[in-house]
């Protein structure tokens, strides 16, 4: 069943329409990218899916269940985890406490400690920082923590909003590799990025400009598109 089906989604803030009738779907095992410049409406799409804002029209379904009208915590309990823009870790909690509060027991076959150890296995740096207050961690570590926190949901769909923001190219590459590994372990990924290097690992994707769909298709179509090449890859 389709993990996420977005149909004719429109998001408006007052008179300003941020997203115009966008449609796409994410299937199990996919890495789907939403590519676009600042202000293209990418963040609004994610916020609408996770219930942080109410779409003006359109439908949102996950495995046949409508997400419309659900609170963000209810969407999270369906296994849709959202790593928001700017990481938004809990600054005064330790790294481990950040993970603990994000554990959704009903969704997990593992215990809190087992799942936490699995996250530490994916991000060993977090294990050495477990007693450290989150605001004292480096940007890269905070991004790992934000992703680790989402994994405590045991998500079927992991949505990330510009996780490469503020990271060095090396760190970004490392993080994309981790995402591929997380996908291999069973979660699908919906990735919002300005950084076109994420196309390499995408199965499919969609290019947004000013809230409109410019292009949508599979990996090859995105990679070979003149528009993406000129606008994002600089070739």
């Amino acid at each position: 069943m389709t993990l996420l089906a977005v149909e004719s989604l429109r998001v408006a803030y007052g008179d300003l329409t941020a997203v115009h009738d966008i449609s796409f779907s994410v299937e199990p095992g996919e890495i789907f990218v939403l590519l676009g410049a600042n202000g293209a409406g990418k963040t609004s799409v994610l916020r609408a899916i996770s219930g942080l804002l109410k779409p003006t029209r359109g439908t949102l379904n996950s495995e046949g269940v409508s997400l419309l009208g659900l609170r963000p915590d209810q969407v999270a309990h369906l296994g849709i985890a959202h790593v928001p823009e700017g990481r938004r870790i809990f600054p005064n909690l330790t790294a481990e406490e950040n993970l603990d509060v994000s554990f959704i027991r009903q969704r997990s076959k593992e215990t809190l400690a087992q799942l936490r150890d699995r996250v530490y296995g994916i991000f060993p740096r977090l294990a050495s920082r477990r007693r450290q207050t989150a605001n004292t961690m480096s940007g890269g570590e905070q991004q790992m923590l934000a992703i680790g926190r989402a994994l405590m949901n045991t998500p079927k769909l992991l949505m990330l909003d510009e996780p490469s923001l503020g990271l060095s190219p090396l760190m970004t590459e490392l993080m994309f590799e981790q995402l591929a590994r997380i996908r291999d372990q069973g979660a699908s990924i919906l990735l919002v990025e300005q950084n076109a290097s994420c196309i390499d690992m995408a199965t499919r994707g969609l290019l947004l400009a000013n809230g409109h769909t410019m292009l949508s298709g599979d990996h090859a179509k995105l990679r070979d598109s003149d528009f993406v090449r000129r606008a994002y890859l600089g070739v």
């Binding site: 996770s50 609170r71 963000p72 999270a76 985890a81 959202h82 928001p84 870790i89 509060v101």
Partner: peptide, 9 residues
């Protein structure tokens, strides 16, 4: 807001 996103009611 982040608390809601990680599933806290």
């Amino acid at each position: 807001e982040a608390a809601q996103l990680v599933g806290l009611n």
